[in-house]
Design a protein around this nucleic acid. Sequence first.
DNA 1: TTATATTTGTGAATCAATTCACATTCATTA
DNA 2: TAATGAATGTGAATTGATTCACAAATATAA
Lengths: 220, 220
Amino acid sequence: MISESSKRRISESTIHRLSLYYRLLSVLEKESKETVSSKELAEREKLTPAQVRKDLSFFGSFGTRGLGYPVSELKRRIGEILGLDRQWSVALIGVGNIGSALVGYKEFQRQGFNIKLIFDNDQRKIGSNHKGIVVADIKNLEKELRENKIEIVVIAVPATVAQYIVDDVVKAGIKAILNFAPVNLKVPEDVFLRNENMSMELEYLSFALVNLFNGRGTNR
Amino acid sequence: MISESSKRRISESTIHRLSLYYRLLSVLEKESKETVSSKELAEREKLTPAQVRKDLSFFGSFGTRGLGYPVSELKRRIGEILGLDRQWSVALIGVGNIGSALVGYKEFQRQGFNIKLIFDNDQRKIGSNHKGIVVADIKNLEKELRENKIEIVVIAVPATVAQYIVDDVVKAGIKAILNFAPVNLKVPEDVFLRNENMSMELEYLSFALVNLFNGRGTNR
DNA sequence: TTATATTTGTGAATCAATTCACATTCATTA
DNA sequence: TAATGAATGTGAATTGATTCACAAATATAA
Ligand SMILES: NC(=O)c1ccc[n+]([C@@H]2O[C@H](COP(=O)([O-])OP(=O)(O)OC[C@H]3O[C@@H](n4cnc5c(N)ncnc54)[C@H](O)[C@@H]3O)[C@@H](O)[C@H]2O)c1
Ligand SMILES: NC(=O)c1ccc[n+]([C@@H]2O[C@H](COP(=O)([O-])OP(=O)(O)OC[C@H]3O[C@@H](n4cnc5c(N)ncnc54)[C@H](O)[C@@H]3O)[C@@H](O)[C@H]2O)c1
């Protein structure tokens, strides 16, 4: 829904900031605030007002000069841009430590990310019930992904097997993958792959503590 | 350990790429590769050779012209830069879904991030044993953090209480925090705060599926 | 209705990150 | 020991992202 046949390429940072605005607008909505200025949005996210306005301007003009942006309306529009105005069918592969945590996380569902299928290869886990979902056998991966029209796959298996799993996921026609395994997965050009790398953030803190103790802390 | 009184400011992306190089060098070391060129490092991380060389050049010159970089030596040097040549004392606050997963994750320890303390406010959890660590009462937070010389704190409590917890953590003199709660925490300038925001990555995938279906997939 | 105050939306300017391109250095081979 | 090839390290050029600055639009108050 990028206006005018996506003239400009939208940067990753802009999209991440849209997520921040979306979350903040939800808070403002709860506080029954009707409008909000770029100045206020910026202050609450430690950004500049110009940045906020520029980010939004890529997608249209949502504000009123002299007044600001209508909170609920802007939230709705950003939701549309991010695809949060619809439901997504998600499958999770690997119900270990991190996989179990994700299944039990209600926030994803609230945002429209519905975990419909869970896979594992451990016979003790297959058939067991996690939050109302029966763990499926990884052997039926491709068939089940297709039959259930899964759109997003979350990888939470050991790093050693992640590439094999991803190859099968790609074969099943999946175009969006979120990977928790600390490994560089290879996917075709037309598949979106994002990595959730917790070690990286710990390492950033470690670097900061060792190197930056004159400078200041940095949020993301 | 930035050379020459940290003239240049090192960008966040450079540090994240150092993490990637570090992981890749571990793999190359296991494969008994002695040297590696910027070209090969770049190919395996989908970067350009110039980028790799520039990143490393901020910290010194580690390579040999005509030959490349010595794998083990470079890994050691990057480890030093990232502070992975030492042990870090970490405390985890909140042993719920995600907190339990983190406690059970051996990879952090292998990298020198040792979870020494776990806190919760749930009486049923306090005193119970998680992977050899007894859950402490959140009431003793400040005292315990100081006595155990904790350097990094991981926040895994509900978003509603995260700010109160962080305030206490800061009072205890902690300068590095990794936060999993989806909320914008306020910390003083001299405290490093990083946010691990999984929703953000799912939202990026959602955006990509809705908007970018002419373009291509993008790794991080 | 007019004047004043706000705040947007956006080109232009600036700042930052990435890529280019090449002199320099070293390994290797003849 | 000289010639060849490979790959680094780094200023310069380029590309991209952020900030500036201001005209235009609207709200609000007189
Ligand atoms: N636990 C954490 O906090 C954490 C943090 C960051 C990253 N990670 C990464 O996430 C991944 C999972 O970590 P974890 O701690 O949950 O590990 P885990 O061992 O607890 O869970 C892995 C799960 O995958 C299943 N599995 C293994 N092979 C499979 C296959 N071929 N097909 C289907 N399922 C298979 C296992 O049966 C198990 O249930 C790992 O790559 C890990 O490095 C974990
Ligand atoms: N579960 C996930 O997969 C996931 C993913 C992304 C983000 N998160 C975020 O991580 C945080 C934890 O999520 P969760 O699913 O583990 O929740 P959870 O409810 O399972 O765990 C929260 C834990 O914090 C403890 N707690 C509550 N108040 C406390 C206090 N004042 N002091 C100390 N401990 C306290 C609770 O007793 C509980 O053990 C939340 O902010 C959540 O939004 C979770």
